[in-house]
């Protein structure tokens, strides 16, 4: 590459890790939050199912 042209584009290589890092880290932060939420939701849903089952059983017993 022409020396002057190389100088004109010299910021690309230096800045690339920062720019790509920013994109990746934002997605990682959002992804971690979503994964934690979905796991927690799954666990809470199984608690709800267990409680419903227990209530249904008690209601049947009391009838």
């Amino acid at each position: 590459m022409d020396e002057i042209l190389a100088y004109a584009y010299s910021d690309v290589i230096v800045a690339a890790p920062y720019v790509i890092g920013a994109y990746v880290l934002i997605w990682v932060a959002l992804l971690i939050f979503v994964i934690i939420m979905l796991n927690s939701s799954k666990k809470t849903q199984s608690d709800i199912d267990a409680l419903r089952e227990a209530i249904e059983r008690r209601e049947k017993e009391q009838k």
């Binding site: 690309v12 800045a15 720019v19 994109y23």
Partner: peptide
Amino acid sequence: IDPPAVLEGGTVITNQLLFSQKIFYFH
């Protein structure tokens, strides 16, 4: 840049290009 850089298509670049600005599209 002195002297300006000239691309193949005849485009003249007079300033150094700022790649870091691309962070703007997400930040």
